[in-house]
């Protein structure tokens, strides 16, 4: 029983972290219809920015928002110079190549500027573990889960309540219809890209102390995020959150009670099952005719 409770806690906390990466990915896919292969690179940038800002003397909690701003600024520069010109309305094929190239360039830049060795990202929560009724909870993990839930709830509220948020929803449902409803679709796309990138940077800043900063640190996390996003339904924000919870709990239970070696396969098995039974994902909508 204790093992089950500890496993469920592990899974929930894990899921909250996955959700943050996955929501960024899905917001970008939903409004821009591009698969952002550079998501992992922006995740790494978030961790490195946090690390460098901390080295300059700022405390971790202040470094996080500053790091997110830095990543968003880099994202903005890339959006204005490359993504906007090369990708919008070009479909998913070009996006894979262009975002993959951006990802490689960012990783190479990190190696050039900071070096390849993994570096610790200091956090006041450090290795502290909180023991509640015999269950071990890492303080950093609790912080990641709490921050993810707070940010995601704020984001969901903003999407529902703000004009820009509503316009993002409109564009993700029907870009052409939104254009003729007088919505500035190019602006909404740029905004969505920035939000997605900022979410990736925030995830990197939060998870850096757990996994250390190294140039390819985003790869494994983004692979999980892809399964989460496909599971939840491409472009569906609620779906990404649900998918993250399913994968987080599923992985934790599977690792504890079945087999560790087969856990990464579990995500994909779930994805294949969902795609067979419900091709649009758990909460996705059936493919719109994009005409």
């Amino acid at each position: 029983m204790d093992l089950l409770i500890q496993t469920l806690i592990n899974g929930l906390i894990l899921g909250a972290g996955y959700a943050l990466v996955a929501v960024g990915l899905t917001v970008i896919f939903g409004t821009l219809h591009i698969v952002n292969f550079a998501h992992g690179a922006f995740f790494a940038l978030g961790a490195y920015a946090t690390l460098l800002i901390e080295r300059a003397g700022a405390p971790y909690l202040l470094a996080i928002p500053l790091a997110v701003l830095c990543v968003a600024a880099i994202g903005f520069a890339l959006e204005a110079t490359i993504v906007r010109r090369a990708l919008y309305d070009q479909g998913e094929h070009g996006s894979i190549i262009v975002t993959f190239a951006i990802s490689q360039a960012i990783v190479a830049a990190i190696i050039l500027v900071v070096g390849p060795d993994p570096l610790p990202v200091p956090s006041p929560f450090g290795q502290t573990a909180v023991s509640v009724g015999g269950f071990f909870l890492s303080a950093q993990r609790i912080f990641i889960a709490a921050a993810s839930v707070a940010v995601l709830a704020g984001f969901a509220l903003w999407l529902r309540r703000s004009v820009k948020g509503q316009q993002i929803l409109a564009v993700s449902q029907n870009a052409r219809g939104a254009l003729y409803s007088g919505i500035n679709v190019p602006l909404i796309r740029s905004l969505s890209f920035l939000l997605g990138i900022a979410a990736a940077g925030l995830a990197g800043a939060l998870m850096g102390p757990m996994i250390s900063a190294f140039p390819t640190m985003g790869d494994a996390n983004v692979i999980v995020a892809f399964t989460v996003v496909i599971l939840g339904g491409l472009g569906s924000i609620g779906g990404a959150m649900l998918g993250a919870l399913v994968i987080g709990l599923g992985n934790a239970l599977f690792e504890t009670y079945v087999s560790v070696s087969w856990t990464p396969a579990l995500g994909w098995v779930l994805v294949i099952l969902v795609l067979l039974l419900r091709p649009q994902g758990l909460m996705g909508r059936a493919q719109l005719d994009r005409h």
Partner: peptide
Amino acid sequence: ATYDGATTDFTS
């Protein structure tokens, strides 16, 4: 316990 290279978390 043998895990895959893509594993991101070892808590469980």
